[in-house]
């Protein structure tokens, strides 16, 4: 297949983020990533409509092997594995998307303000970031969930907060670069208020790091939230959820492994899909055949200073 006329990274950046996404989707890597992601999203979204039974209904014996009636067999309590798989994405993916959105918005707001306002605001924000970075992400989330209990809103906020410091670091580095440019200086001289400078002049120039960060954080969100459900700190165990299923059906691996394999596979496909697509975005946007994390360590930081913080 002939390669589509490749636009240069700079040209892509001028034509905006939809063009970058489109270009990424047309690379082989991006196409695979996007297909996997959309497939899992489709299963999660359409699944509840197609489920033959209710995921909470007992239809067979515990760990019944797959047969004609329950095609994927029964789970630990004799519920239909197929129905629980079809319903179990809708309780997982929206939470991951919400947590990602919350984390990216909070982190970006903190990072951009720190870099643009400098001085005390910068110091205060970045020291808070250091404090949050002193916990392993999962431990921070568990700490926040430990007393109030696993409430849905709290999971979203806790996972988002665990992402925010990393996002803030990346966006701070990116902003430091952008805010030195002439068009920003020009607007400042006209006496435009800092808030407006940040939202109208700086933010539109940060779409690439924002896209890459959102993709990376979405991958980590699904991993953390599925992990929480796996540990039993997700929503109620009655509610079908892929992470919960992997844990509760582990003890029946010998009689009905499908109750673990299928939900596990869906989590994996989604994580690999978003990660691969993000990789494609980064490659297209920067115009190099290397991943940002790697560039950050060894690459040319003068060209893309925000990469420096991506590690």
């Amino acid at each position: 297949m002939a390669a589509p006329r490749a636009k240069s990274a700079a040209a892509l950046r001028r034509s905006g983020w939809p063009a970058t996404l489109w270009a990424a989707a047309r690379t082989p890597r991006g196409a695979i990533g996007l297909t996997l992601t959309l497939f899992v999203v489709a299963v999660a979204a359409l699944g509840p409509l197609l489920a033959p039974h209710s995921g909470e209904q007992f239809v067979t014996t515990p760990f019944a092997p797959p047969s004609v009636a329950p095609p994927l067999g029964g789970d630990v309590l004799g519920r239909d594995v197929l129905s629980r798989v079809l319903e179990g994405g809708w309780t997982l993916l929206p939470v991951a998307f919400a947590a990602t959105a919350f984390g990216v918005v909070v982190g970006a707001a903190a990072g951009i303000s720190a870099a643009y306002l400098r001085g005390r605001a910068d110091g205060l924000i970045m020291r808070s970031v250091d404090v949050l970075l002193a916990f392993p992400q999962l431990v921070l989330v568990l700490l926040l969930l430990s007393i109030v209990g696993p409430k849905l809103w709290l999971i979203i906020i806790a996972v988002g907060l665990a992402h925010a410091p990393q996002v803030a670091r990346v966006l701070r580095a990116a902003t430091l670069d952008v805010s030195e440019r002439d068009y920003v200086k020009a607007v400042e001289l006209q006496g435009v208020r800092p808030f407006k400078v940040m939202t109208k002049e700086i933010l539109p120039n940060l779409t690439t790091p924002l896209m890459v960060e959102s993709g990376l954080r979405l991958t980590y969100s699904i991993v953390i939230i599925a992990g929480l459900s796996f540990l039993g700190f997700g929503q109620s165990p009655n509610i079908p959820n892929w992470g919960t299923m992997v844990n509760e059906n582990r003890i029946g691996l010998e009689t009905n492994p499908w109750a673990v394999i299928v939900p596990g596979l869906l989590i994996v496909l989604f994580a690999i899909g978003t990660n691969t697509f993000t990789d494609a975005i980064a490659r297209v946007a920067i115009g190099v055949e290397r991943r940002p994390q790697e560039l950050a360590e060894v690459g040319d930081p003068d060209e893309e200073p925000w990469l420096e913080a991506l590690v």
Binding site: A226, G227, V260, V268, I272, N275, D279
Partner: peptide, 18 residues
């Protein structure tokens, strides 16, 4: 490497158990 970086550790663990 790109594929494995996305894998949740509990899934890797369960696969190894299987």
């Amino acid at each position: 490497a790109l594929t494995v970086t996305a894998l949740p550790e509990f899934i890797v663990a369960v696969v190894l158990v299987i």
